[in-house]
Design a protein around this nucleic acid. Structure first.
Lengths: 346, 346
DNA sequence: TAAGCTCTAGCGAACGTTCGCCTTACTTAA
DNA sequence: TTAAGTAAGGCGAACGTTCGCTAGAGCTTA
């Protein structure tokens, strides 16, 4: 650790005042091209790296974006989030920002970290993920007028920028696929009513059923907390019904419930994909290796991460308060759990 | 966004000089208890949050820890890392630090982000994960004399602090379990020779085999890149052997290869857990829902994350250059893939 | 009674930038 | 010729802390 190279060293070497160096390196101020070249060369030669603390202090910008870890239920470790993070990291790097990660808390104190980060001037903006209805974090940030972009939508009335998966479109694809394979009695393993994501996916289910001219049987809609156990229990219930009241396909709103349903079916000595079709949602890494492999919906999570960052950085740099929305359409991944076909090799 | 509350506002309210406020809030300087109480109350009343940039500029400490995203192969999204991150985040928060996350790059430029973060004074130390032999990041940080703690070991000669999973102990447990279930012809789906993690686990395999008095058949040791495909291929080869030269158990060094092996076995109409036992390593989230559920080794990754941060923070605060090592013993999770027993309900 | 010590707290300076205004030299128009 | 305009870069100040030293008050000791 030798003496730090400061902007003054660069200035001296380039034969200009140090403030001019600052101008060139930031504002793109007006200087002669030669001078600029001289300064850039000097900076390069010396390996100059601006001291971020000094820069932040004066400019009031930290070039940091706050992001709280997964607010998802802790028990179901979400591999999806890793991809989201990767997407954000790369986009942030390209834009010259870093991510500041902090843990998520539940309950009343969940906005506390946000307040601290804002007031200590550590971040320029936030990425808020795992958004739900009446999210206190969103309300807090809106009240403060602090920049952020959300991964996910919330109440219709709240005006803020977001990127989200088009769950409706995804679910529509699922149902259309099942219908195309000749299934009409399609049950839904859904999410609680108060779940924004659940409602979105449910809307796709309803739309597609309606388009196909199929009546929805309320008995075939179960709402639960998305666990394997829940999927298993509900499926057992359906299998206990007399055969004419039993569904011939189950569209689960996440992969966990689909796995539970598959287990229940197999315990009843029925063949998944043949006797009953099962589909999931999210495309967790292992689902392609289940027996049979699970038909599911793949979310382009890394891409969403990139878009979220781009949107946020854009609004930070332009100081624009305009809100933007992006919906990304997910992709149906057809595997044997819905078709009953034999695996075709690898 | 109103006027910022600075240390001077606090000082005025408490009737002392602002430098004294700083002393009280940081160094725990010697002041009369009453004065201290008055200052703390004033800070509280005003909701004072120190400006981190100013603090960093003067004190040369950012209270940030750098951590690069997953260096794991991008194709196999690693759900484990999410837990690691969560563990770190919570420990860091308790210690008053935040994590600065940045993307991992491969090749020659992989140390570049480290250099930048150091020189721009953004971080006080690093957590380096996914460590392997001859890791250029470790060498760079050692050369610079910059504080870091690694998740994982590297070359024997390098002196640095780390926390690691005791893969040897984990693998020993696996083999002992298989032997206890009456298996003796135990094959290993291992990792490349140049993998530090692979060597560690392999040592456990060898030790346990030796302790059990079983000769190791070199034909039953395969080394590959850890993919499902690799496990599948190798297993097919073993199954093609005449029955007396065929292993009766397969210990895979990660869950992916175990899944591949299971598939190959099932394609040959053999029963996993009965005809051949299969075990994995890592306990990925979905493995408990495979058919049959996979016996594997669970790594306490969140705990490791916490320990890594504690160790790093400790060395930062005490300015201690002493190196520390911690090995965490993983836990064997016995499921049906190695026992062939029926599922006992849920 | 003077010297010395301890306990409190104050004060000037510095950390390394960026901001905004100012100066100088040169060009152009009237 | 002169006023005005423009390009190029200099300069003082400020951002909000923490560091290290100093000063005064009160107490002890020889």
């Amino acid at each position: 650790m030798q003496d730090r190279i400061t902007i003054k060293d660069v200035a001296e070497r380039a034969g200009v005042s140090y403030q001019t160096v600052s101008k060139v390196l930031n504002h793109q101020a007006k200087v002669k091209p030669q001078t600029e070249a001289r300064i850039r060369k000097a900076a390069e030669d010396l390996g100059y790296q601006p001291d971020q603390a000094a820069s932040s202090l004066r400019s009031r910008r930290s070039r940091m974006i706050g992001y709280s870890g997964s607010p998802w239920p802790a028990n179901q470790a979400n591999p999806i989030l890793d991809q989201f993070l990767q997407g954000m990291l790369h986009a942030a790097e390209r834009a010259g920002y870093y991510l500041l990660c902090f843990p998520h808390h539940t309950g009343e104190r969940q906005v506390e970290p946000y307040r601290q980060l804002i007031e200590s001037r550590r971040v320029d903006g936030f990425v808020v993920s795992g958004v739900e209805y009446d999210d206190p974090r969103l309300q807090f940030l809106l009240d403060k007028g602090f920049p952020f972009v959300a991964f996910g939508r919330s109440n219709v009335g709240m005006r803020f920028s977001f990127v989200d998966v088009d769950g409706k479109a995804g679910m529509r694809k699922v149902v259309e696929h099942l219908v195309a394979r000749g299934r009409r009695h399609i049950a839904a393993l859904s999410w609680p009513d108060n779940s924004r994501v659940g409602q979105d996916r449910m809307a796709g289910y309803r739309e597609a059923m309606q388009s196909a001219g199929i009546d929805i049987n309320p008995d075939w809609i179960a709402r639960g907390e998305g666990s394997v156990t829940f999927g298993h229990q509900v499926m057992q219930g359906w299998l206990a019904l007399p055969s004419e009241r039993r569904p011939e396909a189950v569209a689960a709103f996440n992969d966990g419930m689909a796995v539970g349903a598959m287990q229940a079916i197999q315990e009843n000595r029925l063949a998944v994909g043949v006797d009953l079709a099962v589909t999931g949602f999210d495309d967790l890494p292992m689902t392609q290796y289940l027996t049979p492999p699970l038909t599911t919906v793949r979310l382009p999570v890394a891409e969403i991460g990139e878009r979220v960052i781009k949107m946020l950085v854009n609004s930070l740099e332009n100081n624009s308060a305009e809100v933007q929305h992006e919906l990304v359409e997910p992709e149906l991944v057809v595997r044997q759990s819905s078709t009953g076909e034999k695996a075709s090799g690898d």
